[in-house]
Each structure stands twice: as C-alpha cells, then as structure tokens.
Simulated assay, not measured.
Amino acid sequence: MKNMQINHAQKGFTLIELMIVVAIIGILAAIAIPQYQDYVARSQVTRVLGEISAGKTAVEESLSRGQFPTSSDEIGLTSSNLMNGSVPAVSFDSGEAGAGYIVATFGQDASAIISTKKIEISRDDQGNWTCVTDLEEATGYIPASCENGSPN
C-alpha cells in the first residue's frame, strides 16, 4: 500500500499580515479624518455667508421703501432657516441713512473649529457692503470676500 500524504495547506492570514492591514487603515484614517473635518468647516462657513448675503437684497428693498430693518425676521433670516443653528442678528440705524449690519454667529451644531465664531456683512451710509469675520487667519476658513476683524 502506498503511503498517503495529506497536504495541509495554510488557510487564512498570518498575524503579521493582519497587523500590516490594520496599520495601513490607521494611517489612512489619520490623514482622512482631519481633511474631512476641514472640508466640513469650510463648507459651513461658505454656506452661512451665502445665506446671510441673501439678506442684502431684502435690506436694500426695505431701505428703498424707507423702512429700516431691525430684526432678522424682517429680512427673512431666522435661526431656523440658517444652517448649523447659526444665530442671525440684524441692526440698521435710520439716523445713518441705512448703515447697519447682518451678523451670523455659528451655533453649537457647527463644526467645533468654528462654533461661536461670527461672520458679519455691513452696509455703510453710501450703500457699500463689506464682510468681516473673527475666524482665525491661520485656519484658512476666512472667505476671500471677507476680512479678519471684530464683528458686532
């Protein structure tokens, strides 16, 4: 009778192979997660600026009728329709020919990096609009149309 040899082939992965895969996944996650958080914060800043900028049209319309908006409701901006629970504030002074501002403070639903920060668009008595924000320059989240400064 012939000797029967049974071939026991290795099945599965070795511990070293599994450790290498886990290390690669960890490295990829360490790179991807901060990039994703950065992307989310930038998109939130851009969206809120766009949303409060839409209020400029409503302000100009009110001013053309001789009315000076004193609340965000009057120009259609409420915290319920702004993203991230941003809290809008509006102030226009009738004594300065329509000078005033619209400011949004990022709420607690915003990215942790930008929560409690503000973006403000203000109108001077000549009708010129400017943007200012207290976002740190180092973060790179300041929109191109805004300056670093102290909003109201």
Score class of each variant (00 low, 15 high):
Asn81Asp: 11
Ala30Pro: 02
Ser86Glu: 04
Ile75Gln: 04
Gly26Thr: 00
Glu74Phe: 05
Pro88Met: 09
Thr14Gly: 07
Gly76Cys: 10
Ile33Val: 14
Leu18His: 00
Ser62Met: 10
Ser72Ala: 15
Glu51Gly: 05
Ala54Asp: 14
Gly95Glu: 02
Ser72Pro: 11
Ser94Asn: 09
Ile25Gln: 00
Ser64Tyr: 06
Ile33Lys: 04
Ser53Met: 09
Tyr36Gly: 02
Ser80Trp: 08
Glu74Ser: 10
Glu17Ala: 00
Arg47Leu: 15
Gly50Met: 13
Phe92Thr: 03
Leu49Met: 07
Ala99Lys: 13
Ser80Phe: 11
Leu28Arg: 03
Pro88Thr: 12
Ser53Phe: 03
Val87Lys: 10
Val90Met: 03
Arg47His: 09
Ala54Pro: 01
Leu28Asp: 00
Ser64Lys: 12
Thr57Cys: 01
Ile20Trp: 00
Asp38Ser: 11
Gln35Leu: 10
Asp38Phe: 10
Ser80Asn: 12
Ile16Arg: 07
Arg42Met: 13
Gly98Lys: 12
Ser94Met: 09
Ile52His: 08
Asn81Pro: 08
Ser72Asn: 14
Ala41Val: 05
Ile27Tyr: 02
Glu17Arg: 01
Val40Trp: 07
Ile25Trp: 01
Gly85Leu: 03
Ala97His: 03
Leu18Phe: 01
Ile33Ser: 03
Glu74His: 04
Pro88Arg: 08
Thr14Tyr: 01
Ser79Pro: 07
Met83Val: 15
Val21Glu: 00
Ser86Pro: 07
Leu77Cys: 05
